[in-house]
């Protein structure tokens, strides 16, 4: 079941720039105010830290994000693209509903995501939990 909310072309352009061009560290997506389309809200600078990224996830509103997650495993540096659906418990129920039912449209448009995180509080998107998921497998 889906909401029929669309994905704006800039979402994909930004994603390609991140994936292939490594121009950004992360991208924050949001719903357009009239709930018809998903748009890019912020492109995180390459030099930004994980905490900067977390600061862009509001306490009471929904977001989606792609983060270029870098970590070390077996002595080597790895990169994985992490997709985060952010829907904190105290977001408005309408927002949560729209977010959950529209998520699939965005997720399917983004090719090359290795890890998916569904976050409702900051502990679920903390660096350790993401690292746990990313470092599992290869």
């Amino acid at each position: 079941m889906a909401s029929g909310v669309g994905v704006s072309p800039e979402c994909l352009e930004a994603f390609q720039d991140l994936k292939l061009g490594h121009k950004f560290k992360y991208i924050i997506y949001n719903l357009k105010s009239d709930n018809t389309e998903i748009i890019v809200q912020k492109k995180g600078d390459v030099s930004s830290s994980y905490d900067d990224f977390l600061a862009d996830l509001p306490e009471d509103d929904i977001r989606w994000a792609v983060y270029d997650f870098e970590f070390e495993k077996d002595g080597g540096k790895r990169n994985k693209l992490v997709f985060v659906s952010w829907a904190p418990d105290n977001a408005k129920i309408k927002k949560k509903m729209v977010a959950a039912s529209s998520r699939d449209a965005l997720r399917r448009a983004l090719v090359g995501i290795a890890v998916e995180i569904q976050g409702t509080d900051y502990s679920e998107v903390a660096h350790e939990s993401v690292y746990d998921k990313a470092s599992r497998g290869n």
Binding site: I62, K96, M97, A100, R103, Q118, T120
Partner: peptide, 15 residues
């Protein structure tokens, strides 16, 4: 629509 999915969505969760 399925009530299970509606309830999950209303909680902001796809899964």
């Amino acid at each position: 629509a399925n009530t299970g999915v509606l309830n999950a969505f209303a909680a902001g969760k796809g899964s």
